[in-house]
Simulated assay, not measured.
Amino acid sequence: MADGVATVVISHPAKRNAMTAGMWRALPGLLSALAQDSSVRVVVLTGAGPTFCAGADITSLRGDDDPQALSVAAEEALAAFPKPTIAAIRGFCVGGGSQLAAACDLRFAEAGAQFGVTPAKLGIVYPASSTRRLSALVGPSTAKYLLYSAELIEAEHALRAGFLNELLPAGELDKRVAEFARTLTARSQLTQAAAKEFADGRTDRDAHWAAQAAGSDDTAEGVAAFLERRAPAFTWTPPAD
């Protein structure tokens, strides 16, 4: 971790970073530890080497493993992470890789990346929660295009569809993600935490966030910093569970 930014690396180079059963199981616990660490302000999810994640490593499953349950648990843990998350994508982002990327708040990719949601190649019913998340991100028509065909799309297509927030030239992904993550660490955690829940569809937390805002000095600090032409020093932090 550096300067409030924790980087989680998907690393299984022999299989283009395909997620093993053990990797799926480890992710929720890792994210829980990062969520409890007050020094962590942003999490970046990326892949080792030239590939983000090529899906699930089916060969790693045992007879008692439920691959869909494992992937959904990891996906939901990532989606529920209370601080900003960024997927930094290069190379293949396919199957379980797209599932994890879609669960992040933001997705930045390098030119040449390829994306696909491939259960139709295996006769698998894509999880309901994953389908709804994908549809909310790119719209029902594009979600159906991806799910029906299982074809890969280029990064430019993913950007137009709304799957990506930014598409960077080759060699510039890491620099841009680091720069943007630093920007996020300088902003109000109160604003970010409330915005994440509202944007993700929570409808039962209006009073909670109104109370948090009323008890915080972030607004006064933000206005004062603006008038004094200085960087704000926001102080709100997530309340302990």
Rank of each mutant, 00 (worst) to 15 (best):
V117M: 03
R90F: 03
S188T: 14
S130M: 05
A186M: 14
T203I: 13
F52P: 08
A178D: 15
L184P: 10
E221H: 00
R90T: 04
F226V: 12
P28H: 11
S130A: 15
S216Q: 11
C93L: 08
T20K: 14
M1K: 11
G47D: 06
W236E: 02
A181S: 12
A6M: 00
S60W: 03
L190Y: 13
P169R: 15
V223P: 02
W209C: 01
K83Q: 04
T191Q: 09
A14V: 13
E151G: 09
A6Y: 00
F198W: 14
K196H: 03
Q68N: 03
A113N: 06
T237L: 10
S149K: 00
A120H: 13
S39E: 12
W209L: 01
A2K: 15
V94H: 06
I89G: 04
R25V: 11
A54V: 08
A79D: 07
A150H: 11
R160P: 02
F226Q: 10
S149I: 04
V117P: 00
D204E: 13
F115H: 06
A18Y: 03
A48M: 01
T51Q: 14
A80R: 14
Q68W: 00
P232I: 11
V138H: 13
L164V: 08
L27I: 08
V125G: 07
A170Q: 15
Y148Q: 11
T219F: 15
P50S: 14
S38T: 14
D218A: 00
A220L: 06
L78M: 11
G116W: 01
V5G: 13
I58K: 13
E197T: 09
A211G: 11
A158P: 12
H12Q: 15
G97I: 10
P238E: 07
G49I: 09
R176C: 10
G4K: 08
A224V: 10
V117Y: 02
I124C: 04
P13S: 13
S98L: 15
R132I: 14
P119G: 04
T46F: 00
E156N: 06
L173K: 05
A111H: 08
G201S: 08
S32F: 05
F198K: 14
S32M: 10
T20D: 10
R41I: 02
